Simulated assay, not measured.
Amino acid sequence: MSALLEVSGVSVSFDGFRAINNLSFNIGAAELRAVIGPNGAGKTTFMDIVTGKTRPDEGDVRWGEYSRSLLKMNEAQIARAGIGRKFQRPTVFEDQSVADNMTMALRANRNPFSVLGWRPSPSSDQRVAELAAEVGLAGQVNRKAGELSHGQKQWLEIGMLLAQEPRLLLVDEPAAGMTLAEREQTTTLLRRLAETRAVVVVEHDMDFVRRLNCKVTVLHQGSVLAEGSLDHVTRNPQVIEVYLGR
């Protein structure tokens, strides 16, 4: 089966520092993948490249069945192609309700005239209800986003990304700041989402990664150091030396 995302020989330097060094790996169409590694390993830069925020000096990033190059697309085009990114800190409209946040995120025609004339409809309301249920916020749709717990805000942002119908979700440290119960619910959510789309989770928390029970890619100095199950990579002497043995 062909990969949904194929990173091939990508390198990028900032002021002489090589943040990504000949990085190559693939993500399948319905796959949950954890990306781990020490600070400065290139995890954030990898996500920046995939989403069009950073242009590599060499290499390519191919996307979808037709293997289109993401490097020929801008950030908005990449988002419309089906790549969604969730940053570590939730970015939601705190003064708006959960339902309003999700409604604003729904995939729709974004030209100025369409936006000015747009009104919620029974179908959009139904979609928002489905999204809220999917991320565990069915009982919170009328609450202001600012009143939610940290974990609930993370779920709301995931719901807002899902409103765009992405085929790949890039999720940055979702477990940070969550209660144990929220972490367990987040694990369940991410595993379920990966049944129908690709989900890449960048995470430092090894307990959370173990709960995800998925393939793990270890980055070090901008390259793949090891890949496989968590048990496999954590037995790797190089991984122990550069990451786990700190």
Rank of each mutant, 00 (worst) to 15 (best):
18 R>H: 08
21 N>T: 06
23 L>M: 08
25 F>A: 05
25 F>G: 06
26 N>D: 13
28 G>Y: 05
28 G>A: 15
28 G>P: 01
30 A>P: 00
33 R>W: 05
35 V>T: 04
40 G>H: 08
41 A>T: 07
41 A>V: 09
44 T>K: 04
45 T>A: 04
45 T>H: 01
47 M>G: 03
51 T>C: 11
51 T>Q: 08
51 T>V: 13
53 K>N: 11
53 K>V: 15
53 K>I: 15
54 T>N: 01
56 P>Y: 04
57 D>Y: 05
58 E>C: 14
59 G>C: 08
59 G>H: 03
66 Y>L: 12
69 S>C: 10
70 L>A: 07
70 L>C: 07
71 L>S: 06
72 K>P: 02
74 N>P: 02
74 N>V: 02
76 A>S: 12
76 A>Y: 11
77 Q>P: 05
77 Q>M: 13
77 Q>C: 10
81 A>G: 12
82 G>V: 05
83 I>E: 02
83 I>C: 03
87 F>R: 00
88 Q>L: 04
89 R>M: 12
92 V>S: 09
93 F>A: 11
94 E>D: 14
95 D>P: 02
95 D>I: 10
96 Q>A: 13
97 S>R: 10
98 V>Y: 04
98 V>M: 03
99 A>F: 09
99 A>N: 06
100 D>P: 00
101 N>F: 08
102 M>S: 07
102 M>E: 06
104 M>A: 15
105 A>L: 11
105 A>C: 09
107 R>M: 13
108 A>G: 11
108 A>M: 12
112 P>H: 10
112 P>D: 10
112 P>C: 09
114 S>D: 14
115 V>N: 09
115 V>T: 13
118 W>K: 11
119 R>G: 02
120 P>H: 09
121 S>Y: 04
124 S>D: 01
127 R>P: 05
128 V>N: 06
139 G>H: 09
139 G>W: 11
142 N>T: 15
142 N>E: 15
143 R>N: 14
143 R>E: 14
143 R>C: 13
144 K>R: 15
144 K>M: 12
145 A>R: 00
145 A>F: 08
146 G>V: 04
147 E>K: 12
149 S>N: 12
149 S>A: 12
151 G>W: 01
151 G>S: 12
151 G>D: 08
152 Q>H: 14
154 Q>W: 07
154 Q>E: 08
156 L>A: 06
156 L>M: 07
